[in-house]
């Protein structure tokens, strides 16, 4: 079954661009990455799925439930971690966690205690005494304590130190192995590359690629590094050309025979053809889009 499905989902409001004809499918049990720069529409997508925003047109469903008509049913099965977590400042963390559990009509105290211990979160502290990172931890516990079937995480690692980030992803991997679907937006590509099985890239409100993470990294480009001299002017599909002392490196997205012909015409002393990392692919996609 699909955990998330959007069908030409569009949301436009105010000055914000919103999202346009978004087509996205996340299968149950996936660890799905949602990549895009700030303002690309990641949060708008998430907020529309959660019912905080009403779609302008199109449709979407979560576990087969319509996002407009069956909000409550969806929210019962979803844990949400916002990019910036804000809570009632005078509340203690333990009261906040209890309030969240009460709103879900469940007793999550055992799981909350386990999570707080792993994340080293002091539940006696008041919210307004918490640092940004600790507030984030409180938000993580709120999102995870009810063991939801789908976790929607909006840029979740901001504010967490590297050790906590690792602990957090360990918890997410455990949850994923237990069957939870994880939908995770980020502009930190290494996080997506390390953790996700599939990912979609969103830019200016539109999905411009959606594939397995390895597919996204492989499909579109190679990082070619040449030592020696060669005339690259006849190669049309070069991106991100960097010239060093006696070497040149570029992303290549064109035909392999053309590349080989071009290289064989020059004086090459060394050659490396590597898979670019997702960071480079990501930039490459956007450059491509900008050029259009």
């Amino acid at each position: 079954m699909e955990a998330i499905r959007t069908d030409k989902l569009t949301k436009s409001y105010g000055k914000a661009r919103g999202i346009i004809d978004l087509e996205l499918t996340v299968e149950e049990g996936e660890f799905f990455g949602f990549i895009g720069p700030n303002g690309a529409g990641k949060s708008t997508t998430i907020r529309t799925l959660l019912g905080l925003l009403s779609p302008t047109s199109g449709a979407a469903s979560v576990f087969g439930m319509d996002i407009v008509r069956e909000k409550e049913g969806i929210l019962r099965r979803v844990g949400y971690l916002p990019s910036e977590a804000f809570f009632y400042p005078k509340m203690r963390v333990r009261d906040l966690l209890k309030f969240s559990a009460d709103l879900r009509k469940t007793d999550c105290s055992a799981e909350a205690a386990r999570l707080c211990e792993r994340l080293q979160l002091d539940t006696e502290r008041k919210i307004d005494e918490l640092s940004f990172g600790n507030r984030k931890k409180a938000a993580i516990v709120c999102a995870l304590q009810s063991k939801p079937d789908l976790l929607i995480l909006d840029e979740p690692t901001g504010g967490l130190d590297p050790l906590m980030q690792r602990e957090f992803f360990d918890i997410l991997q455990e949850r994923n192995r237990e069957g939870s679907t994880i939908f995770f937006s980020s502009h930190v590509l290494s996080e997506v590359q390390r953790n996700c099985t599939r990912a979609a890239v969103i830019r200016q409100g539109k999905i411009i690629a959606c594939d397995s993470v390895s597919g996204l990294a492989k499909a579109h480009a190679k990082r070619v590094t040449i030592h020696g001299s060669v005339d690259l002017s006849r190669l049309p599909d070069i991106k991100d050309k960097q010239t060093g002392s006696g070497s040149v490196s570029f992303l290549y997205n064109g035909s392999m025979p053309d590349l080989l012909r071009c290289l064989s015409s020059g004086q090459i002393t060394d050659l490396t053809v590597a898979e670019p990392d997702l960071e480079e692919v990501f930039l490459h996609f956007y450059e491509e889009e900008d050029a259009k």
């Binding site: 959660l50 019912g51 905080l52 909000k71 409550e72 049913g73 929210l75 019962r76 979803v78 949400y80 916002p82 910036e84 977590a85 804000f86 809570f87 009632y88 400042p89 969240s100 709103l103 879900r104 709120c142």
Partner: peptide, 14 residues
């Protein structure tokens, strides 16, 4: 205004 709406409205309460 206190930005707590995200918290409250993403719980399963209509």
């Amino acid at each position: 205004s206190n930005k707590t709406a995200d918290f409250l409205l993403t719980h399963p309460v209509s």
